[in-house]
Design a protein around this nucleic acid. Sequence first.
RNA 1: GGCCCCAUCGUCUAGUGGUUAGGACAUCAGGUUUUCAUCCUGAAAACAGGGGUUCAAUUCCCCUUGGGGCUACCA
Length: 497
Amino acid sequence: MKTLNSSNQSPKIRVRIAPSPTGFTHIGTLRTALTNFLFAKKNNGQFIVRLEDTDRNRFVEKATEDLIKSLKWAGLEWDEGIDLDAQDKIVEKGNYGHYIQSKRLAIFRKYVQKLIDKGQAYYCFCSPQRLEKMRKEQQKRKQAPKYDKHCLHLPKSEIEERLRKKEPYVVRLNVPAEGTTEFNDLIRGKIAIENKLVDDQILLKSDGYPTYHLAVVVDDHLMKISHILRGEEWLSSTPKHILIYQAFGWKIPKFGHLPQLLNMNGKKLSKRDGDVGIRDFIKKGYLPQAILNHIALLGWNPKTTQEIFSKQELIDQFDIKKINKAGAKFDYGHLDWVGSQYLKAISVDHLFKVAKKYLKEQNIIMDETKLKKVITIQKERISKLSELLEDIEYLVEEKIDYSKDLLKWKDMDNQTIIKNLEKAKETINNIPEKEYTIQSLENKLLEVAKEKKGELLWPLRVALTGQQKSPSPFECAWVLGKDKTLERIEEAMKMVG
RNA sequence: GGCCCCAUCGUCUAGUGGUUAGGACAUCAGGUUUUCAUCCUGAAAACAGGGGUUCAAUUCCCCUUGGGGCUACCA
């Protein structure tokens, strides 16, 4: 049985990200993933996650797990590719596998052979020393360093002899000396590079692994990738890739090169700039949606004044034509603002669940009732979960320590301080346990304070917190609970008296 | 060095052949508040430079400058 495609159906949109497992997942990788995800969702296409693990020297064992967990944390679902099972073992899903390039070595060899047979690629036995010397001389002559096609002209018999003797070799693409390779970038428009400037790049390394250039083309073709949305750093190697497509006689996908993420100095965002790993952002306790929101706006803009977007809004409003060309600096201050907007908007119950998980991961143990109360007052004041318990130790710890001078509001005398603390104590004591809420504390205390709010509320707040700055005394009294609140007021009175 | 890409407030950006060049973050000032944060109001802040094209260029073209990327048996 055969299923026929209806003829007017446009080819399925398929995009992918193809990271290399060389370290912890970078925020730039997430941004590329987000763009591909949005493009796929918007166009009813498929999003694939493939692993480009062809560099054995830089391979990092844990990187793949980190990648998958990062994407999942961010809420970017994908249709095919690598995944993790319940035991965190790497598995694959989809009909175009393997999605791990090191498991596809035989495929790459087969296609390299095709190119050799067609005369589009050739064996090269040159030593690294010869190559280095050659490049140095070319640079001295101010030429673009590139392979001189020395081995292209080796007689067939010599090649066979050297292969038989198991001499190390690589396979290079035979790039035409004439002509220009052009393509129409989805974001940048027409890009053209003269072929004479393109190196006879290596397709197959001497260790039998393909280079990125070969693997990416073969896999994108075999996996029917329709659009390649990747970082700007690939722009100048795109002609190489197109030349490979042409050597095979394959259909060339559409390319779009995203602007880079930069640090505040305009350089490529790197570890030295602070937190650039997804795990760093997770550890700081940013909500995933806040991160997505922030990076979505780096190099893309809906052309409206909207600043906060749900994932669905991002999908609905995404338009590749609205992606900018210039690199975008990653501003942590803006991220924090976005983060605070999300925390304000989220419900206490929802945040409670998130925070519970977060604190557990940070090995922080806290009473759940208290945590819920802390969340209630802190969610309006913070931008990320790491700030949840910052500067409010006095609400959690048993004892507080402060100088009694702090209890004094403006030029109050000791007697008035004691009198007002007594008033506050009485008022709070008269609130029944079940009515002990922020609102009723505020109502009752303000009623008692009358005009001179500061004289009642400042000493009370200091009595409860021992701090110059803190949330309101109503909130603090509520979090502390009635008993603890009364106890701290009494202690303050003792200090003054 | 060669090649490629890019260029509006400090940052992310909107914008148009004729605009008081708009918004947001950050900054500063005022207000609200017991304090801090929030919130409200306001201020300061940009078309890199030089040539063209045009009645008119921030906008179109060229050059310069500046920035970034690539130039590996790394991706």
